[in-house]
Design a protein around this nucleic acid. Structure first.
Lengths: 125, 125, 125, 125
DNA sequence: GTGGTCTAGACCACC
DNA sequence: GTGGTCTAGACCACA
C-alpha cells in the first residue's frame, strides 16, 4: 500500500478517498476497527495531523464513528456503505465518460480501448 | 463553455487540462490560434495572470508556441498532438480502471455499468 | 549583498542568475538550504512572487529541490553543479571574447588589458 | 550578420549595442552613412519602428547625426568614437571579471581558460 | 491589442 | 513559518 500522493491536491482529501474506497471495497468491514491515527500516519508517511483531519471529516460524513477510548470503527450501517460504493462508482464512470468524450472518443472506440487493455467486453463470451 | 473548477486543485492546472483536451479533441487545430490571455480570462472568469501561468506551462510542454506580439498558436506538430491525445486517453483509462478495481468491481460488472449508462458494448452490432 | 538590477531584463531572470552563481561558486552548498522565499524577497527588495517565480524556474532546471513545507535545498547532485559552473564560465568567456573581438580587439590587446586591470597573465611567474 | 536577439531584453537596446559596436570597431566609419531604417529593419528582421527608436536614441547620445534629407551619418567626432570604444571595452572587461570572480575563478584559472580557447597569453612568444 | 513582468496583499495546506 | 496559488491592477515592449 505504498502510495504517492498528488502534490496538487490536499493530502487529507486523498486520504479520505483512500479510506472511502477501502470501506466501499470491503477491505475495511462494516463495524470493523480503523487503524489508529499513528498507524495510518506511519503507513502513508504523512503527518498525524493530516490523518486526524481526514478521519474527522469522514466522521462528519458518517462513514466513521469513534468509540470513546477504543479508537474508530467503520459505521455498521451496511446500507450506507452500499450507497457509498454506488456513489463512488457513479462518480468514476461519469468522470471517465465525460473526459473520454471530451477527447473525441466514440462509444465504439471506448469499447475497443477497454477491450484491448483489460479484456472488458469479451468477458464471458 | 461555462466551467466550474474543482476548488481543491490549482485552477491553472485545470485550465491546462482543458486546453490539452481541446487540442487533443481537435477543437483547437494544429497551427491554429489560441484565444488571447485576456479572452480566456473572461471566458473562464479567472484572473489573466492565472491564464498566463497555464499557457506558459503549456508552452514549456511544447503544445503551444507564442509569436512575439501576435498571440499564441497550437503547435503544428501533428504527431505531437496525436501523442498527446493517446497519452490523455491512456491516463483516463488507467485511472478509471484502477479506481473501479479498487472499489471491487470486476470486468464483467464494469461492462454492465458502462452499457447501462451509455450503451457501450452494444453499439451497432 | 546589496544588488541593483538591470531594469531592462526581468528581475526573476537576474535572481536566477545570482542563485546559479552562488551555487556554482560554492556559496550555496550542494544539499544546503536555500533562504526562504520571504527572506530572499526582503534581501533583494523585490516582491515575494518574483522570488517565487525565479525559484520555481530553478527547480524546473533541477538546481533546486523543494521539501514540501521545509523550504528548498540546492540539489545534492555535485556533478550537476560542476556542470553548471563550467557552463556558466563557458558562457561568460564566449560572450566576452565575442564582444571584444566585435569591438576590434586582438588577442594581444585583450591580454594587455586584462593584465593591466587585474594582473592576469603575470600571476606568480 | 544574421542575429538572434535575446527575447528578454528590448530589441531596440540590442540594436543600439550592435550599432555602437560597429562604430567602435570601425565597420561604420566616422562621418560615414548609416543604412536607412528600412534597410536595417530588413537586415535584422525587426519592425521599422524598433529600428527608428534605436537610431533616435543613438542620436540623442551623439553617436549619430541626421542630415535633413540625406539620412543619418556616424558622427565625425573621432575622439568621441575612441571614447566609445574604450568605454564599451571597459564595460565588457569589468563585467567579465566580475562574473568570473563571482563564480570563484582565480586569475590563474582565468588565464588558463582564455589560453585554452583562444590562445590568449601565448600570443607572440 | 498582444504577451510579459511586477507589486501588493490575501488565503491555503502542511509542519 | 514554509511553499504555493490567486486576484487586482499597473506598466512595458512590440506590431
Amino acid at each position: 500500500m505504498r502510495i504517492e500522493f498528488d502534490p496538487n491536491t490536499p493530502i487529507y482529501l486523498q486520504l479520505m478517498q483512500l479510506i472511502r474506497q477501502a470501506a466501499a471495497a470491503g477491505q475495511l468491514l462494516p463495524g470493523g476497527k480503523v487503524p489508529s491515527v499513528r498507524e495510518l500516519a506511519v503507513e502513508y508517511a504523512v503527518n498525524p495531523n493530516t490523518v486526524q483531519k481526514a478521519l474527522a471529516e469522514l466522521e462528519r460524513e458518517g462513514l466513521l464513528v469513534t468509540e470513546r477510548t477504543a479508537g474508530r470503527r467503520i459505521t455498521d450501517d451496511v446500507e450506507k456503505i452500499n450507497q457509498l460504493r454506488a456513489e463512488l462508482a457513479r462518480q468514476q464512470i461519469d468522470h471517465f465518460a465525460g473526459q473520454m468524450l471530451a477527447l473525441g472518443f466514440e462509444r465504439k472506440q471506448l469499447l475497443e480501448l477497454l477491450t484491448e487493455k483489460w479484456g472488458i467486453g469479451n468477458g464471458h463470451h
